[in-house]
Computed example of a mutant assay.
Amino acid sequence: MIDYTGTTTLVTGGGSGIGRALAQALAARGARVIVADRNAAGAAETAALCGNGAVALTCDLAEPDAAARLVADAYAVSGRVDLIASNAGVGFNRRLHKADLDDGAVDKLFQINLFAAVRLAQAYLTELEARGQRGRLLITGSENSLSVPAAVKGFGLGLYAATKHGVLILAEWLRDEMVGGNKPLDVHILLPGGVYTPLVAGDLPPDPAKWPKDMAMILPERCAELALAGLDAGLFYIPTHAHLAADMQPRHDGVAEGVKRLGLV
């Protein structure tokens, strides 16, 4: 189990949901948490819940230069950042055949869900290399990073899923770039299935007993528990639900069938 005593962690999207649960779980293990969110009140509330000198910062990662500013601000707080949880994300539900790809909301979706993780990694690596320190980056993906999950088929999540597919492959390539040469960053990706957060709360009843069984919803605290367990185990892929593996099977089977029918074996 990783001992976070004396460490500083930065959690983006920490004002609610998975981000808040991650911040609290890290604080419970001894970390000083820097909570970043575009919702200043939410970030401040999470910091108060964390205690241990937690700090709240307001940041909108839809702005291209916000990630670099945030990392600089985090270092100004304590002079070191041992873990960044790149967790900020927004939902988006619009069917592809009707979506206006020039809508500003689509650009914002990609800026926050996809590009912010890379910008945070770039700024973080610059600081780590300059200071001769080592760090850890945990990126929040989704079950939608891996497949079209059976429980949400027909929901019109194509553009949202594209950002989550994209952030997975970016994380995989970033991990590849960190191999060899004493590179200073360990990379991990959290792959949550259904988690009861403000992003989905409007579509579900508050009583867990009434949640759709096929969604296998969990609470943010359980998601955070699994995230930290994955970090403890040194996992790159950190799933929160068993069905993630099963949901990927049709893609594997489809490619295998293509290989067979085209005589590639």
Rank of each mutant, 00 (worst) to 15 (best):
A85I: 07
C59T: 09
E172G: 14
Q111G: 11
W211R: 07
P208N: 11
A150S: 14
E127H: 09
Q133K: 03
A256R: 13
D65F: 01
H165F: 08
A25M: 05
L109T: 09
A66D: 08
E177T: 15
V33Y: 10
A76F: 00
V167Y: 02
M1G: 13
E63K: 12
G30K: 14
D214F: 03
A116F: 02
Y124P: 04
A67L: 04
A40L: 01
A62C: 08
R175D: 14
K108Y: 12
G91P: 07
F110K: 05
P184Y: 13
P212N: 03
G15Y: 01
R94V: 14
A72S: 10
W211L: 01
H241E: 11
G154Y: 07
I139S: 09
A256W: 02
G154Q: 07
K260M: 09
Y75L: 11
V35L: 08
L61F: 01
F155N: 15
Y75Q: 08
A85L: 03
V90T: 12
V55A: 07
L10I: 05
G91N: 12
D214A: 08
F155R: 14
P198D: 08
A66K: 02
R222M: 01
F110T: 15
L128G: 14
C59M: 05
A161V: 11
A161E: 08
V200R: 06
K183G: 00
R20Y: 11
R222P: 01
K183V: 03
F92N: 01
N182C: 13
P250R: 06
A74V: 04
K260W: 10
R94G: 10
L128W: 05
A44R: 09
